[in-house]
Design a protein around this nucleic acid. Structure first.
Length: 951
RNA sequence: GCUGAAGUGGUGGAAUUGGUAGACACGUUGGACUUAAAAUCCAAUGGGCAGUAAUGCCCGUACGGGUUCAAGUCCCGUCUUCAGUACCA
């Protein structure tokens, strides 16, 4: 008997696949195409943990299965290699992020190779590679050179807009832009200077410069993500953070809101992800209304123009641009103090905290556009500057939040009594938010109308008097595209008199400059501000020293692009990854179209998945791609969580004072405990029975060396466990390498699938892995006897054929339904049955090897070659299910009484409903049950169940 | 707060359209083999009650209701956990 040696076998086939380029995809084929893609990994310093490969294994199973069923499969892998962690590490250690990234990628690659993925590595891409990001820069230029024509609902070249301006000014233009843009005639346009024209065009481009609110940390001199702020201070260092305006590149994704919403219908994505995107886009139909205040005008968007006569006050975001000019002197101090307090709160905090109500009266009154009433204007932090216009008309009788605000400040200056416009509704306790047919009152011409009628009538009136118009609003905001970071794509942009200019495409890539440190400059400029050679010479068309004072030298952009830039179009680069002349060839894109199966985490629902849809639509409008959407089918794999281990540490009172001791989980300390806490310990020091290797722990944690450890009675020291996100900082990372070493990649692959449904989050626990490893060994044994490899050419028994075909059916169905965990179970059942049947027939064992090959490719290849085949198993036809092997003459029917199953009866499978009833009623056991009772109803479902309702 | 998921034995999970709840594994217990351990193999294993036993009865899919001959599955309400919340990737 030859023992199963996973290390040898797996190494052998991994080398074979690499040498023979078994999984190389070709861009022309008679076969149908299939494109399976995993979400781009960021190569983190912690290496791949067991959670990462979950999705990769699933997509690999599908890819291998598709090859077996006659598809030309594109299954690539690469790295989203720009990002904060490498930069953070650079800040701390001075090591160039490129080096960190290169090392991390090498590690990832090594780890992935060990798991036996069928990637076409010739197509690997890295977003931080200049060969790649030159195309990302080119797409940025494409966006800059485009505007959105709402009349035809697509992006168009900016040159067309220019010629239309020359001919007819803004009169015929219906572009996606901000509100209130300057209008002009053709003559006026033609009289503008080049610079003036450029300024105007900048407002129309799909990427444009704007002032937006950011979380600014003065001490760190940088902008922080909400994520990096804890309780209002920076996570790193605990410095104060304030909201501040900053001029940044924006992406006009809002222009695509309607298409991003509508096209969701055609996608084979889960309803929950589509719903998340719908909510994120947040379409609402309503009206834009203008309230006059002296010479100013406050615009608000409302979804309830029918309630316009219920406006009791207005609230502006404290950051609203009009706040300073309308505030009265009497209120100025209070307003200033409130603005300052608000600046210290993050947006997320302001949204989440609905319990604390706060605000300040500005002292100003706006004029109601219809009634002419004086409406007091407040500021309140529940109104966010970035949402809509940053101002709301408050209708307390019809909105909960306005109601709460009005009651909180009731009786104070500037807070009049709530106006009720709902006939016969009591709003003293709560707002009336239902949109039913309750007639409206106290509303002049709207009196007696229903919600629907009043909506239309109010909008009509507002449009008539020029104080508003019907409008569809989206919650989706234009995306900030600038980052004040080093490790990202440089913008191909230089500035001439403060106006941005694009570097010509033929001079790309514009490579990242070297800097002495990866920190912002002293005066708060981004890290690229430290580069001494970072100016653009328009004569030589290259980067030159900042000291070069020729007239043709201009400063380059100092921001870099965000993480999502490179990942928004990478799925197309894989189609033609080594093309040096263009992003990808037309032919390659037309052949591969878009991604047939995309697997990744649902945490990307509103980021990556929305941004890449946006870019693909832009590329489509500009004729660069033939598809409207990047990903046809999406599967969201659940996160694999870590089981963190904790050691309990107590502070106890002893004679000499206070002492720290470590105590085993479950042991009671007899003595005075002052305080206690639990410390993370690395999970590698803990076994499956939660017992800590105290020595290793002490070596790892210096301060634990001289401490007392209180053990259990049986001498072991136990830890407690908690499920958390798998992360380096929680010391609960499990490395797949160790599993590959001990049990092999095939076992790892099967086990990750066996853990549960792909889409469900689950904690990682290796306790069950021996069962899967046992299965692999039993599978191996099926093909061997005492003397070594052995199969017979004799006909298989009907039972074995039944087992085989039952398994073929199940595995095919499971892969089509992405239910991989149940496949593994059915493999186990098959092997258990075939072993019991002592099956050694080639007729069964050959197809079985193909069946398992998508899941456990190494052992499958080895068995296939032992079976006498010279070619790889990878392209062999998948076994086909034949019904005839499963045909049975009888079925075990559950017999129930009042819905409760009592026993089963073996009954003929082809019996009709009446025959079944007759047969069952003749049965002794049934008679016994029915004795002394009346049958009220008999339910017979052929093939399913027999149920008697008795009384 | 808002949005989206999830909740089934000691554990991971299975259960096609509403039709035998707990497949398949892990763990545990007992046994075989062994000087011993590991490995391997066999048997039992949701909880409770009754019985020498065969077996029988009751409870049971987060909680409280409902629909139905029949509910883990459908409906209403509640609780808990997880994820996202616009500069983490």
């Amino acid at each position: 008997m030859v023992h199963y040696k996973h290390i040898e076998i797996e190494k052998k086939w991994q080398e074979y696949w690499a040498q023979n380029k078994t999984f190389k995809a070709v861009n022309h084929s008679d076969k149908p195409k299939f494109y399976a893609l995993d979400m781009f990994p960021y190569p983190s310093g912690a290496g791949l943990h067991v959670g990462h490969p979950l999705g990769y294994i699933a997509s690999d199973i599908v890819s291998r299965y598709k090859r077996h069923t006659g598809f030309n499969v594109l299954h690539p892998m690469g790295y989203d290699s720009f990002g904060l962690p490498a930069e953070q590490y650079a800040i701390q250690t001075g090591q160039h992020p490129a080096i960190t990234t290169r090392d991390n990628i090498a590690r990832y690659r090594e780890q992935m190779d060990r798991i036996g993925f069928s990637f076409d590595w010739d197509r690997e891409v890295k977003t931080s590679n200049p060969d790649y990001y030159k195309w990302t820069q080119e797409i940025f230029i494409l966006l800059f050179d485009s505007w959105y024509d709402k009349d035809v609902d697509k992006a168009k070249p900016i040159s067309e807009l220019e010629s239309r301006f020359r001919e007819s000014g803004t009169t015929t233009i219906n572009a996606a832009t901000d509100e209130d843009l300057q209008e002009f005639t053709a003559d006026e346009w033609n009289s503008y200077t080049k610079e003036e024209q450029e300024k105007i065009l900048l407002d129309y481009r799909l990427t444009y410069l704007a002032d937006t609110e950011v979380n600014w940390c003065p001490a760190l001199g940088t902008v922080l993500a909400n994520d990096e702020i804890v309780n209002g201070v920076s996570e790193r260092g605990g410095h104060p953070v304030v909201r501040k305006k900053m001029r940044q590149w924006m992406m006009r994704i809002s222009a695509y809101a309607e298409r991003l919403l509508n096209d969701l219908d055609g996608l084979d994505w889960s309803d929950s992800i589509k719903e998340i995107q719908r909510n994120w886009i947040g379409k609402s139909v309503g009206a834009m209304v203008s309230f006059k205040l002296d010479e100013h005008k406050i615009d608000v968007f409302t979804t309830r123009p029918d309630t316009i006569y219920g406006v009791t006050f207005m609230t502006l975001a404290p950051e609203h641009e009009l706040v300073d000019s309308i505030t009265t002197d009497a209120q100025r101090d209070a307003v200033e103090a409130y603005k300052k307090a608000t600046a210290a709160r993050s947006e997320r905090e302001r949204m989440a905290d609905v319990k604390t109500i706060s605000g300040v009266f500005t002292g100003a009154y706006a004029t109601h556009p219809l009634s002419g009433d004086k409406i007091p204007v407040w500021i309140g932090d529940y109104v966010l500057a970035g949402y809509g216009t940053g101002a709301v008309m408050a209708v307390p009788c019809g909105d909960e939040r306005d109601h709460a605000f009005a009651n909180y400040f009731a009786g104070q200056e500037g807070m009049p009594a709530i106006k009720n416009i709902f006939e016969g509704v009591d709003i003293s306790e709560e707002a009336y938010t239902a949109k039913d047919n309750t007639p409206i009152c106290n509303s002049d011409f709207l009196n007696g109308m229903s919600y629907k009628q009043a909506m239309a009538a109010a909008i009509e009136k507002l449009e008539e008097i020029g104080a508003g118009k019907g409008k569809t609003n989206y919650r989706l905001r234009d995306a900030v595209f600038s980052r004040q970071r080093y490790w990202g794509e440089p913008f191909p942009v230089y500035y001439k008199n403060g106006l941005p200019q694009m570097i010509d495409r033929k001079h790309l890539p514009l490579e990242l400059p070297e800097v002495d440190e990866y920190l912002p400059t002293e005066d708060g400029a981004p890290p690229l501000g430290r580069a001494t050679t970072w100016s653009w010479c328009t004569m030589e068309n290259k980067v030159v020293s900042n000291d070069d004072d020729r007239d043709c030298v201009y400063p380059l952009e100092l921001n870099t692009m965000p993480g999502w830039a490179g990942s928004s179009w990478y799925m197309f680069r894989y189609m033609d990854a080594s093309n040096e002349n263009e992003m990808f060839s037309k032919e390659a894109q037309e052949y591969w179209e878009n991604v047939d199966l995309y697997i990744g985490g649902s945490e990307h629902a509103t980021g990556h998945l929305l941004y890449s849809r946006f870019w693909v639509k832009v590329l489509h409008d500009l004729g660069k791609v033939t598809v409207n959407e990047p990903f046809k089918k999406l599967i969201n794999q659940g996160m694999i969580l870590g089981e963190s281990a904790f050691v309990k540490e107590l502070e106890v009172e002893v004679e000499s004072g206070i002492e720290k001791v470590f105590i085993s989980q479950g042991v009671n300390f007899d003595g005075k405990v002052k305080s206690g806490r639990k410390l993370h310990t690395d999970v590698s020091f803990v076994n499956n029975s939660n017992e800590l290797d105290v020595k290793s722990f002490q070596t790892w944690r210096q301060d634990a060396r001289d401490k007392k450890f209180i053990h259990n009675d049986d001498g072991v020291f136990k830890v407690s466990r908690e499920v958390e996100k798998m992360s380096k900082s929680k010391f609960n990372v499990v490395n797949p390498d160790d599993i590959c070493e001990q049990y092999g990649a095939d076992t790892l692959r099967l086990y990750e699938m066996f853990l549960g449904p792909l889409e469900q989050a689950k904690p990682w626990n290796t306790a069950g892995i021996t069962g899967v490893y046992g299965f692999i060994k039993k599978l191996w044994k099926l093909y061997h006897n005492e003397n070594g490899f052995h199969v017979s050419d004799e006909k298989a028994s009907p039972e074995s054929m039944k087992t085989l075909h039952k398994t073929i059916k199940k595995v095919r169905e499971d892969i089509e339904n992405f239910s991989f965990n149940t496949s593994v179970s059915s493999f186990m059942i098959a092997v258990n049955e075939l072993t019991a049947q002592k099956c050694d027939s080639r007729e069964v064992l050959e197809p079985l090897a193909i069946l398992v090959s998508p899941y456990a490719p190494h052992i499958a290849e080895e068995l296939w070659s032992l079976l006498g085949h010279e070619e790889s198993i990878a392209y062999v036809d998948f076994p086909v299910f034949e019904e005839k092997y499963l045909v049975e003459s009888s079925k075990k029917y559950p017999i129930s009484f009042n819905g409760k199953m009592k026993f089963t009866l073996e009954l003929p499978v082809d019996a009709s409903k009446d025959e079944l009833e007759k047969l069952v009623l003749e049965n002794d056991k049934v008679r016994q049950q029915l004795e002394g009772k009346t049958i009220r109803k008999t339910i017979v479902v052929p093939g399913k169940i027999v149920n008697f309702v008795v009384g």
